[in-house]
Amino acid sequence: MKKCHFENLIDEYLFDKLDEKQKEKFEEHYFNCPQCFEKMNQTDEMIAVIKAHGSEIFRDFYAPRKTRRSRLEPVLAFLTPRQWAMAAVSAALILVVALGVIPNRKTTSPEFLINDDLVRGSSITLISPVIDNLDQVPSEFRWQRLRDNIEYKLFIFHQKELLWTTTTKDNFVTLSENTMSLMAPNKKYSWQVKAFSPEGFLIAVSSPVQFNFVTSK
């Protein structure tokens, strides 16, 4: 089947990266082209799944070291699993003793779990909004900068469902009117920030913080 040249615009349309004119043109097109519409619908569904289940689908990328295990396979085969377990237990014991004796100098970046995401590195401190009962829709979200060249992903949730998300290299996001209009007074929202290294690995996560506001404007 011949490929429709509008197909190339599907992703950009779904991520809202087209300018107004291109967007209109593409929208008119998919009202007229069932093939493009079907493809777009499938891509949309796929992205929806990726967004909703990403942390579980892409576990390997969150904890990059796990994926390298394959190279270690010949080494792993050297001992049986039971022997490995024994070795691990002994190693752990030695480590505990050693750590107790040697005062730890430089700590290598720790690993911890937040909301099922395995995180290596530090956590992010959220700056504002961190209080309840704001008097209007928060227009700016701000958090502590970690270091340069980090990409932050901001998530806003309503109850447990993702309401809005964006990425930035700054340590704050200013919401547009459109985004602000997604939020209504007297409802509970929460927000969270994740940080990614230039290689795209998750390196830090903030705890989710709740907020709500009492009146709109």
Binding site: E45, A48, A52, E177
Partner: peptide, 15 residues
């Protein structure tokens, strides 16, 4: 109409 930064607004819609 401030430009919308990056709204993938429907993560749960099909879900």
């Amino acid at each position: 109409h401030a430009p919308e930064p990056n709204p993938y607004l429907s993560p749960q819609e099909h879900v």
